[in-house]
């Protein structure tokens, strides 16, 4: 006897795919954004160098976060990592050395986060929140609470210039990082096992996967990517701002979560994160071009994140049950005597 996959027809397959994939909300948002922007502010598409730059800015940090969230952990410290690495880089006169030290600092921060999560046993939300605050302070200490100017301004200006067409080095780095992470999470064993660690940690451990090492890798990736974003920002602006990063935190979380990376781990993809970053980037540029001030942009992106996090596909069912019990009819509620 042979046992086989149950056949469910094309329609069933599509329906199943739709139920399993988590990128749906991201695609809906992207479609909405594209339609609305195409009608109201089409210049956002013609000014694609600006738009691409914005997508890269949001997307890069979100890519690193994706690696961590896939394992069911969270890295809130990315915002400060970005600020600290930028400040470190700008404080070192030699550009090359500065970049290397800044990136190393990002990896180191990832390691420290992982130590607290893996060996001390602190929930990653709280551990990285503490790091977020402490590193923000560190950025102030190193920078003496002022923006630090890059000593090699020419390099910065050169960095900001487009290479080919609209593609600036920032966009190129983002594309390379996206491809690298996509390959890592789909083709490299260690990356693929992130899904196992996030999906069923006990099973991953039983199958002989080095769970702790994977968690270390994830935090190191997110630290490194955040530092990379800090380095790029510093180069483009020819100065490092110790207060940088707080709005990046919001946008990058929004990109990953709307892109379908499930906070409990095990589900999601960098493609989804890219979709999320694309929709948020286009939206932001369109809003800016239509003269909407940044405060209102924050309201938009904050609302998108709020909606994304409460419509998490895995939680909708739980929410439905909660709503039912929340609005229980009261006549049933009396204590019988």
């Amino acid at each position: 006897m042979k046992l086989g996959t149950e056949q469910s027809g094309l329609l069933g397959r599509v329906r199943n795919l739709a139920a399993r994939r988590t990128e749906g909300r991201g695609l809906i948002l992207l479609a909405l954004v594209i339609i609305v922007v195409a009608i109201l502010e089409p210049t956002a598409f013609t000014a694609y160098s600006v738009t691409l730059g914005r997508v890269a800015l949001i997307g890069l940090v979100a890519l690193g976060l994706t690696a961590v969230i896939l394992m069911g952990e969270l890295d809130l410290s990315v915002a400060s990592t970005l600020a600290v690495s930028g400040v470190i880089m700008a404080s070192i006169p030699d550009l090359g050395l500065g970049i290397v030290v800044a990136l190393a600092a990002g990896i180191l921060i990832g390691i420290v986060n992982a130590v607290f999560v893996v060996y001390v046993g602190i929930n990653s939300f709280i551990a990285t929140l503490g790091m977020l605050f402490a590193l923000r302070g560190l950025a102030f200490v190193i920078s003496d609470e002022k923006p630090v100017r890059l000593s090699n301004i020419d390099a910065g200006i050169a960095f900001g210039a487009p290479l080919i067409g609209p593609v600036t080095p920032r966009v190129l780095i983002f594309i390379v990082a996206f491809i690298a992470l996509q390959v890592f999470l789909t083709r490299v064993r260690a990356g693929r096992e992130f899904y196992a660690v996030g999906g069923n940690r006990q099973a991953a451990f039983d199958a002989g996967i080095p769970v702790r090492r994977r968690i270390f890798t994830g935090f190191m990736i997110s630290g490194f990517v955040a530092a990379l974003a800090g380095v790029i920002n510093t180069l483009e602006r020819t100065a490092a701002d110790p207060t940088a990063g707080s709005s990046v935190l919001l946008a990058s979380f929004a990109a990953a979560i709307i892109g379908g990376v499930v906070l409990t781990g095990g589900r999601g993809s960098v493609v989804g994160t890219l979709i999320g970053a694309l929709s948020l980037g286009i939206l932001q540029v369109a809003l800016t071009l239509s003269g909407v001030q940044t405060d209102i942009q924050d309201i938009f992106i904050g609302s998108i994140l709020l909606i994304a996090v409460i419509t998490d596909p895995t939680q909708l069912r739980a929410a439905a049950a909660s709503v039912r019990s929340f609005f229980q009819r009261r006549e049933k509620a009396q204590i019988p005597t």
């Binding site: 809130l76 001030q293 924050d298 309201i299 904050g302 994140l305 996090v309 909660s322």
Partner: peptide
């Protein structure tokens, strides 16, 4: 009710709230 993560929820309401306030 929606069992969303409190850190993410309040991060988003921070930005919504501050955005409205500044606006």
């Amino acid at each position: 009710v929606f069992k969303a993560n409190a850190v993410i929820v309040t991060l988003s309401t921070t930005f919504i709230g501050l955005g409205i306030l500044r606006w």
